[in-house]
Nucleic acid binder design. Structure first.
Lengths: 193, 193, 193, 193
DNA sequence: TATGAATGAGGGTTCATTCAT
DNA sequence: CATGAATGAACCCTCATTCAT
């Protein structure tokens, strides 16, 4: 109920454009990119960025929230899939892939530059809940070791993304494979390929 | 002919003091600490820091180089120890512990702020060689899976440090345990408990 | 030929609403309030404010002009009252009260932010004339010292307002009493108590 | 004990130059002058200003403190002079003259732009004490009316300065004369000149 | 005509690096 | 050589004013 009429078309366009550019730039260069640079690449003035997002943190938060919400939705849809183990590890790989493509998200998850947990608390908690569901189901099915909780799994996903990005294209997915193997209970390791 | 005479005693002392303080500060606060602050804590002028290290990156590189060299030495000494598997995993844990205690090193390994591989290429390669020896021996002994190389192991050690630091004191070592389990070949997992 | 037809009713309403809100806001918060804020409180767009008043100064000037015109009218009506001395000092107190209630007007009178005399010259001169009449009559009646002119009296009224506002509720009216005493000719001071 | 050695000559020179320029500029143009402008006029970089004064407020405070301290000293020296009434009114005129020459000081005293009482609390209180001494002595001698305190007198001095500056060179001192007359007890007015 | 989004020139402040003392 | 003051390029953010819708 904050607005009495629909937002203007150009405002929506600019907002979307800023979000899109900011997402690309943050993903490619990390969080230290100046707002002025984002504005320049979006073809708008710096003030326009600030009209839509009152602070740099807010802009970044908006991007991360959208990202996390999409990820949570994916987690929710997987939670009802057939095989709990498969669902859990599919989600793990999906989230790592997201993180690889996004340097800024990685920095945020690693706690460098912004405190996402503080800024995007609601989305972060929802993600944690969805993840906890996936995890618990997989653990009950005997597909995941019992001595981990959602916090550790989240950290591992963020860490895998960072490591994979760091290693570049050589041996893609190797880090994630190893980590997932480590998450399986003893005796349930994937047979060597 | 970079120097006509041996360096003065006070210059050596200052250089050592700056290195020591910078190490502590970078470890505790990360790479964003201003040079002025390091100089102040070292009890020298900012110019003195720049006399010994032409840029901030160079200072940080020097610290990392010293760190890496020490780590390499440790790797070398373990390489001749009795059990290759034990040696490898001991070294893994040792390096993670180093990384946990050092925020700046973690930032660097995560790629935020400096590109260590570019700045400390020689030491980095030497570490890689020492690590390769440990790794190969452990793999030959059947203690580590065959589909990883030293680059992946190095990334995993850095990642474990970052993740453990991020999680704080809850479940200490859990991430490292999982990762090490993932590094073992199928069938060689640690028994539960 | 500034307008080919009479202004529309809604335009008049908006103009009046903007003036009213701007007056309140300037009075309460001073001149540094952004135009956007005034527009928001008036329930119009910023562009509407600029349609009616080409600059921020113009808006403020319009307010001050309206204020001054009202004050001039009061001066005119007092000029025909019975006792010239009473009329003069009544008006003095009235104008100080106006100024106390209006932070923006005080800032303008103190020369901080806008040059009212330049922007509202006509109204200012009319006020000066009305004030001169009151003053001259009071001086002829022996109620006010002879060595002051309307400019000094106007400055004193603005100054009293600023000082009273600055002192807040402690000793209300003391400054004005002192100043009015100073304006009386020697021997005509108010008796103590 | 904050410094182990004497400050460098150039630093002292620059600091003094910045203070001098800032004083002139604040006095002439008021508090809204950008720091960059002050730096430019002083022939230094903006960073140099910030080395000596951590914020713009701090710079302005330093200037006001120096000013107020000088004024307090003057008040103290007058406090032991022969005639209490003469001493009080001499000081009044002196402080008004100071304020006339200084637009920034006037703005500060009028509360526009900075809260001097908060930033320069110690100096402000010392001035208030010195002023209270002068005032009490003059009141005991029957030279000043009894229903005013130091706060009112300080406000009157600031107000006189602002008003005199506003009126410019016409009728110089008239405002101050009137105000001082108002401060005398009934029956003690200066005879008409 | 009304709207409110877009603009862009500054403003205060920080900090890596240089250079006078 | 050591010192630490000076520099100046950025950075984040605000707001008077313009202009597309």
């Amino acid at each position: 109920m904050t607005s009495g009429r629909p937002p203007r078309a150009d405002a929506l366009r600019n907002r979307a454009r800023v979000l899109e550019v900011a997402h690309e730039v943050f993903a490619a260069e990390g969080l230290s990119v100046p707002i002025d640079e984002i504005a320049r690449r979006a073809g708008v003035g710096a003030g326009t960025v600030y009209r839509h997002f009152p602070t740099k943190d807010a802009l970044f938060t908006a991007i991360v929230v959208a990202r996390i919400d999409r990820i949570s939705a994916r987690a929710r849809s997987l939670a009802t899939a057939g095989d709990p183990g498969q669902a859990f590890f599919d989600f793990f790989a999906y989230m790592v892939a997201e993180g690889i493509a996004n340097k800024g998200l990685g920095e945020a998850l690693a706690g460098a530059g912004v405190d996402v947990e503080a800024l995007a608390a609601a989305s972060d908690q929802e993600l944690q809940r969805a993840l906890a569901d996936l995890l618990t189901r997989a653990q009950r099915a005997g597909a995941v070791r019992d001595d981990v909780g959602p916090r550790e799994v989240k950290a591992l996903m963020g860490g895998c993304a960072t490591m994979e990005r760091q290693l570049g294209a050589s041996a893609p997915g190797r880090i994630t494979t190893i980590t997932c193997d480590g998450l399986r209970p003893p005796g349930a390791r994937t047979p060597p390929g």
